[in-house]
Measured scan of single mutants.
Amino acid sequence: TFTSIVTTNPDFGGFEFYVEAGQQFDDSAYEEAYGVSVPSAVVEEMNAKAAQLKDGEWLNVSHE
């Protein structure tokens, strides 16, 4: 299960995956970082959410 939350205070020191406002979700980078295949429906969902981000916001993507 993939989830996401919007934050204005990303923790770059941890093992977190963020999408910056104005960027798209990079499923290849996510797969490389976590060894998890990302279904195309999830990629579309995360890109739709990322498109709604305002300046200074980040989308924190995770999975269980």
Rank of each mutant, 00 (worst) to 15 (best):
V42I: 11
W58T: 02
T3R: 10
N9Q: 11
Y18V: 04
F15M: 13
Q24T: 12
A50D: 01
T8N: 09
F15Y: 12
L59G: 00
F17L: 03
S40H: 12
G14H: 08
Y34E: 00
L59T: 01
H63L: 06
N60C: 15
E44N: 10
T7K: 03
W58N: 00
V36M: 09
A48S: 09
H63K: 01
Q23C: 11
V19L: 07
K49C: 08
E20C: 10
Q23S: 11
M46H: 00
E64M: 13
Q23D: 08
K54C: 06
Y34S: 04
S62G: 08
V19G: 01
S4W: 15
T1S: 12
N9L: 08
N9T: 13
Q52H: 08
G13Y: 12
S28K: 15
K49Y: 07
V38N: 00
V6A: 04
V61N: 00
I5D: 07
V36C: 07
Y30V: 03
F25E: 01
T8C: 09
S37W: 11
G14E: 07
D26A: 05
F2N: 00
Y30W: 07
Y30E: 00
E32T: 11
F25K: 01
A29P: 00
D55G: 09
G56Y: 05
G13S: 14
H63T: 04
G14A: 10
Y30R: 01
A50E: 02
D26Y: 06
H63F: 12
E20S: 13
S40W: 14
K49N: 06
D55S: 12
Q23H: 13
E45P: 01
T8G: 06
D26W: 07
V42L: 05
E64S: 14
D27C: 15
T7E: 06
V19T: 05
A48G: 08
G13N: 13
G22T: 04
F15D: 13
I5Y: 15
E16P: 06
N47C: 06
V19A: 00
E45M: 11
Y34T: 09
V43A: 08
A29C: 09
E20G: 15
Y18H: 05
W58F: 09
D27S: 15
E44T: 10
Q52R: 09
A41K: 11
K54A: 09
N47G: 03
G13T: 14
P10K: 05
A51P: 04
G56C: 05
M46E: 01
V19W: 02
T8D: 08
V36N: 02
G56D: 05
A29F: 07
Y18K: 04
E57M: 04
D27M: 13
N60L: 15
Q52V: 10
E32A: 15
N47T: 09
E31I: 07
N60S: 14
E57I: 00
T3S: 10
L59M: 06
S4M: 08
D27T: 15
D27P: 15
E32R: 15
V19M: 06
A21N: 07
I5S: 13
E57K: 02
I5A: 10
V36G: 01
A50P: 03
L59C: 02
D11W: 12
A21S: 09
T1I: 15
A51L: 10
K49F: 08
V36H: 05
E20I: 07
D27H: 15
D11V: 12
W58V: 03
A29I: 07
A29W: 07
V6T: 07
S62E: 03
N9V: 09
F12D: 05
F2Q: 00
I5L: 12
F2C: 04
V6H: 02
D26G: 04
Q23M: 11
F15G: 14
D26V: 06
V38D: 02
Y34G: 01
V43G: 03
K49G: 05
P39Y: 02
V61M: 03
N60E: 10
G35S: 07
L53Q: 00
A48R: 13
A21Q: 08
P39W: 03
S37E: 09
D27Y: 15
Q24P: 11
F17E: 00
S37F: 10
V42K: 04
N60D: 03
E16L: 15
D26L: 07
E32Y: 11
P10E: 01
L59D: 00
A21E: 04
V36I: 13
S4C: 13
E44K: 12
V61G: 01
A50G: 02
F25W: 04
S62F: 14
F12N: 05
G14R: 09
K54N: 09
E45C: 10
Y30N: 00
F17I: 03
A41I: 10
V42M: 05
A50N: 01
F15L: 13
V61I: 13
F12R: 07
G14V: 07
E32H: 13
V42P: 01
F15K: 14
A33N: 08
A48K: 12
Y18D: 00
E16D: 11
A41Q: 11
E57A: 03
L53K: 00
D11I: 13
E45S: 09
Y30T: 01
Q24S: 11
D11F: 12
V19H: 02
S37Y: 10
Y34P: 00
A21M: 07
F25D: 01
V6C: 09
T3Y: 14
S40I: 12
Y34W: 08
L53W: 03
F12Y: 07
Y30P: 00
V61K: 00
F17S: 02
T8W: 08
G56F: 06
W58D: 01
L59A: 01
M46A: 04
P10M: 03
F15S: 14
